[in-house]
Design a protein around this nucleic acid. Structure first.
Lengths: 180, 180
DNA sequence: TTTGGCATGTAATCCGTTACATGATTAG
DNA sequence: CTAATCATGTAACGGATTACATGCCAAA
């Protein structure tokens, strides 16, 4: 009887390897540190934790040091085993659906194309700025362990991609508004 | 009473500006020519067409020249109006969820990281090859009208991005397996 | 004659976000 | 006192894929 786990469940499980934490903390962690490439809502986190507990991959206990009703979740050995298997498997390719490209493709008005591409360029530049902040934060927090390497690699990924968007936009804009 | 249209419905509507066609043809067109950045399944196309007909943005008639039961859909003036409005609006940013990055982030085993990054690099290179084919096809089909410009721009987008992935992978691999 | 491609659609299911519902604690 | 933040969870809804169900026509 093989349980069918979703990426979300493994994400939740994997985050518990960083440290035992509550659903609330996990949500903060996701948005603050891996928000540039992953998101989880409460509507996913709490049900996932529940399923993981049912499957024995995670244990739940109430934090005695907290005045509030706070539940700390911790990964079990079985959880680590399953997580390792998932991590070793090839990441499933995410479906590509890009509304910007769709609008460009379906659009015959050059003015609109120009506007969308210009905006995309500005957004990419803004993303580069934000990635810079994140990188600084990451470097200051844990200076040079292996965890930091993985974090930096993910930042770099998005940096390369954002730079690619800027260059692409420049190329397209040059073609849209030539010699002037 | 404002209808709430999805991106899928506008995609379907927009494709009908290329030419009137059937649901089946649309599905072929999507996978063959814009598959690198957009996908639609029959489970989306047929219900969308139905809703668009109900809303008066599309008309449906049976193709008399076909022996089979073939329904040709055509965009109406009202459809064009609505489409124009949608095209002018800012594309909504697609949520970023990248399982590769998640696995890298959660992984402490360098061998697994190395494997995933190597694979990502190979996949990007393969994508570049496919984009090359698509570009040739596009250039040969309609040599130099405005439609071809839009098509090329979308291809270029993915080319820039795929090249960025290759460069990123090279950088990460260099750090994972230094001096040898 | 049987297989592959044309052709249409619906139903089941999955996965995700947003909205809802509730309440305690703490800082201003 | 009162607003922000901590904290937990469920319900409703939306949007997409996959599986299902059906059948004709053409070519091998």
């Amino acid at each position: 009887m093989q349980e069918n786990r979703t990426s979300t469940e493994f994400a939740v499980l994997g985050l518990l390897t960083l440290k035992p934490m509550s659903g609330y903390e996990m949500r903060q962690l996701v948005t603050q540190s891996i928000g540039h490439f992953w998101s989880e809502s409460y509507g996913q986190i709490y049900p996932s934790l529940k399923r993981l507990v049912n499957g024995g991959l995670v244990t739940k206990k109430t934090d005695p040091s907290s005045k509030r009703d706070k539940h700390i979740y911790q990964i079990t050995d079985e959880g680590r085993t399953q997580l390792d298997r998932w991590r070793a498997a090839a990441p499933k390719p995410q479906p590509t659906r890009n509304e910007l490209l769709l609008k460009l493709f379906l659009n015959e008005d050059p003015a609109i194309a120009l506007e969308h591409v210009t905006n995309a360029r500005l957004q990419a530049i803004d993303q580069l700025r934000q990635l810079g902040f994140l990188e600084e934060k990451l470097r200051s927090e844990h200076s040079d362990d292996s965890r930091s390497f993985a974090g930096l690699a993910t930042l770099e990924y998005d940096r390369y991609r954002a730079e690619a968007v800027v260059r692409w936009a420049d190329a397209v804009l040059a073609e849209l508004a030539p010699q002037r």
